[in-house]
Design a protein around this nucleic acid. Sequence first.
DNA 1: AAGTAAGAAATTT
DNA 2: AAATTTCTTACTT
Length: 102
Amino acid sequence: MKRRRVTSSAILKDSSLSVFERRVYEAVSGIPRGEVRSYAWVARMAGSPKACRAVGNALNKNRYTDIIPCHRVIKSDGSIGGYARGTSAKRRMLKSEGVDGL
DNA sequence: AAGTAAGAAATTT
DNA sequence: AAATTTCTTACTT
């Protein structure tokens, strides 16, 4: 079967996601390759500048890592933060995209 | 339904 | 660096 590639559009069409999650997914999926944003940035986009933790939760619990470049989301300090599939993979991805400071 | 716990952060001291 | 703050989801009662 054709694995229909899940896109950000699917996010808008789906589903049982909460409002917050939808906003987070949309915001994160809009991050261009080679750039990184902070959790605070996403949180602000989601409507709550202090929901940085909730942002991480949304990404981790839902495992939307295939449609959302959550690896482009790092801490405001420049630290790598965390990743549902291992921080190593995240760090490698960022480096592969040309992100410095890692 | 109400309360408690945890989670990949941020801010303040 | 430690403590506090903040928001949401998941689990327990």
